[in-house]
């Protein structure tokens, strides 16, 4: 047992427990932040992506000890219905989802991209989302939404 301190969406948290617990489980089951989704548990699909100090990371295979003293942003931390992140507004404008199970991870991956590259090319958008799987085939809408959010409406 140890104590881990980390920030989630701007709020400080302390977690006493096994440092090998996955960040995704702590987010979903302890902090009740259900926005990060479970898809594979093996860093293969992107449904659980979060930003850790700005880097896009699979929370499903990130142990808690690895986020000690770090700052985590989940999809809930990007924006809210009354103050949406530009990406969330763009996803809605483009209706960029079908089932939406992949959306949280896509939004996080795209947010990570825009933070380091505010006006990406389409190829850069595709590359940034390469680790995110979508079975419904919403990819082209997602690409349009990311370009729209970067001020490059097409």
């Amino acid at each position: 047992m140890a104590r881990f301190n980390f920030v989630v969406n701007g709020a400080q948290h302390a977690f006493d427990g096994d440092g090998n617990t996955s960040l995704l489980e702590v987010l979903r089951d302890t902090l009740k932040l259900k926005g990060s989704r479970f898809g594979c548990g093996a860093n293969q699909c992107g449904a659980c992506f979060v930003l850790i100090d700005g880097a896009v990371v699979a929370s499903c295979d990130t142990p808690l000890w690895a986020v000690d003293n770090k700052s985590v942003t989940t999809v809930e931390g990007l924006g809210r219905p009354d103050s949406p992140h530009p990406l969330q507004a763009a996803f809605l404008a483009e209706q960029a989802a079908q089932c939406g199970y992949c959306s949280s991870g896509m939004l996080i991956a795209a947010a990570g991209l825009l933070a380091r590259c505010p006006t990406p090319t389409e190829a850069e958008v595709r590359a940034a989302l390469e680790r995110n799987l979508c079975r419904c085939g919403s990819h082209n809408r997602v690409i349009r939404a990311v370009l729209r959010a970067s001020g490059q409406a097409r």
Partner: peptide, 23 residues
């Protein structure tokens, strides 16, 4: 008309909306 889907916002804002989120 292309009316926006009423169930997309909760998915885009990461709200609990899937069976996986039910407690």
């Amino acid at each position: 008309r292309s009316v926006p889907r009423t169930d997309l916002p909760e998915r885009i804002f990461g709200q609990p909306c899937f069976i996986h989120d039910l407690e």
